[in-house]
């Protein structure tokens, strides 16, 4: 059983949904980012999405765009992202890590080399936002072979026919992008999210995670009540940004503040009751 399957199965037994956190690898610098990453499971993260920094993150809003540039400015690259995962795995065998980002840095690294090194480091899944089902075979097939899930995305613009395309070849979980827009923007209503999750679940047995526009413990809790997982990204990344001094260096309390904020969000998810029939 993969780490993702084991995590969702264990949470199902507990009767609660997963809390998924996103940070960008190397933001604001390698050491602080690694410290945050290592602290996330204790702060309540059930699954971690780790952003692979890219110069041109056209599907992201300002918070994650700036995070990517901070990381790159501090010298982040794919090798270091994978070494962060390896260092994390040395002390944590159970929390799934999903690398999230854009195709070009993966392609430049070399697809075969990437899936080998990623699997070796302990990566469980990939979300490549600019690689739709029509184009993902060249990564998905070797990744799956190496035991890595390629997570497909569904959105408010996905009709039932499109969902069929999206779900054909999906594994790990399905990531429902709750609003048409970039990360860190508008929020969807719980009713809309529930309707979308139900529609996806009518076509698949995979868990459905929901992200985009979730900022507070309350929002995370209400999403968790209607989906298998709630994802928070920009709000956590903004806490990192708030903990930097004028020159962009991490201040002494930054890591603690980020993990405290994460803990609050996790409480929102953990106290949420899953709706009957959900998940």
């Amino acid at each position: 059983m993969s780490r993702l399957e084991a995590t969702f199965a264990a949470l199902k037994a507990e009767g609660r949904s997963a809390f998924v956190t996103f940070i960008t690898a190397g933001d604001p610098d390698h050491a602080s980012s690694l410290e945050i990453l290592k602290g996330l499971p204790d702060a309540g993260a059930d699954i971690i999405e780790l952003g692979m920094p890219f110069t041109d993150p056209a599907a992201d809003g300002p918070a994650i765009d700036l995070a990517a540039h901070r990381a790159l400015h501090a010298g982040a690259n794919m090798k270091q992202t994978l070494s962060m995962v390896r260092d994390f795995r040395a002390g944590n065998a159970g929390t799934p890590i999903v690398l999230m980002g854009y195709f070009n840095p993966v392609y430049a690294y070399g697809i075969d080399r990437f899936v080998t090194d990623a699997a070796d480091a302990g990566v469980d899944g990939l979300i490549i936002v600019d690689l739709p089902p029509e184009e993902d075979e060249e990564l998905r097939l070797p990744a799956n072979k190496a035991g890595i899930d390629v997570i497909r995305l569904a959105t408010p613009t996905s009709d039932d026919a499109r969902l069929t395309t999206i779900l054909d070849g999906a594994s790990g979980f399905v990531y429902y992008v709750a609003v048409a827009g970039v990360t860190g923007g508008k929020s969807a209503t719980t009713e809309d999210i529930k309707a979308a999750v139900d529609r996806i679940k009518a076509q698949t047995d995979l868990p459905v995670a929901v992200g985009f526009g979730i900022r507070t413990p309350e929002q995370a809790g209400s999403v968790a009540s209607v989906a298998d997982a709630a994802v928070v990204g920009s709000a956590i990344v903004q806490t990192i940004a708030s903990g930097l001094d004028e020159s962009g260096k991490a201040t002494a309390g930054m890591v603690k503040d980020v993990l405290d904020f994460t803990r609050h969000l996790a409480e929102g998810v953990r106290t949420a009751k899953q709706e009957k029939g959900c998940c």
């Binding site: 056209a58 599907a59 195709f103 936002v129 600019d130 690689l131 739709p132 029509e134 184009e135 497909r152 995305l153 569904a154 959105t155 408010p156 613009t157 996905s158 009709d159 499109r162 999206i166 992008v177 048409a180 827009g181």
Partner: peptide, 9 residues
């Protein structure tokens, strides 16, 4: 066609 899923339709 390398765009985010929201744009694909």
């Amino acid at each position: 066609r390398y765009v985010s899923e929201t744009l694909m339709p």
